[in-house]
């Protein structure tokens, strides 16, 4: 099962490796990871996405809580949250596909962030599903380069059953 876990930590050298060490020490793969300081510059927030069985994940959450530099661990499973990720894709854009790429970008509300005579670089934010759909569509046209940030999440304030896709 996919888990999104956020970890509030002290913003210090070596803390990231303590956290990551818990995953690697148990043979657990991290799918994505993003880290940045919070509004309080002495703390950082990490968002880790991973898949694994409940028991191992429960153990990892306890172990994370046990680390001296970890302030708080939140598992978003069962919670309502907004999830975002960003990708930048360099797409082949020759005469016949140039307009098509722009149309796709428009449909997904992606931004053109760089241009050359035979390519466009597009930036897009969204959740996992939207980004993967975008990549799938662009793939036959020819992806020259591709980079993806880790997932970030924030809990929703309105706990509606219906997921608002804004």
């Amino acid at each position: 099962m996919r888990h999104v876990v956020s970890v509030l930590v002290d913003n210090q050298a070596g803390v990231l490796s303590r956290v990551i060490g818990l995953f690697s020490g148990r043979g657990f793969n991290i799918e994505s990871l993003s880290v940045a300081p919070t509004l309080d510059p002495t703390k950082s927030k990490m968002v880790i996405t991973t898949t694994g069985n409940e028991q191992v994940l429960e153990q990892i959450k306890k172990q994370l809580n046990k680390l001296i530099n970890v302030v708080k661990v939140i598992d978003y499973v069962g919670k309502e949250y907004v999830e975002r990720e960003m990708i930048m894709v360099k797409v082949k854009a020759k005469d016949e596909t140039r307009a098509e790429v722009l149309r796709i970008a428009d449909i997904f509300r992606a931004k053109v962030v760089d241009i050359s005579s035979n390519s466009y670089t597009l930036a897009l934010t969204g959740d996992k599903g939207k980004l993967e759909g975008f990549i799938e569509i662009l793939h036959p046209i020819g992806i020259l380069d591709f980079i993806r940030t880790g997932t970030i999440v924030i809990e929703r304030e309105m706990h509606t059953r219906r997921k608002l896709s804004l």
Partner: peptide
Amino acid sequence: IVGITRPCTKHNYL
């Protein structure tokens, strides 16, 4: 040594 002993100490400091 801080890196080496990270998994076998309760905590460590440089």
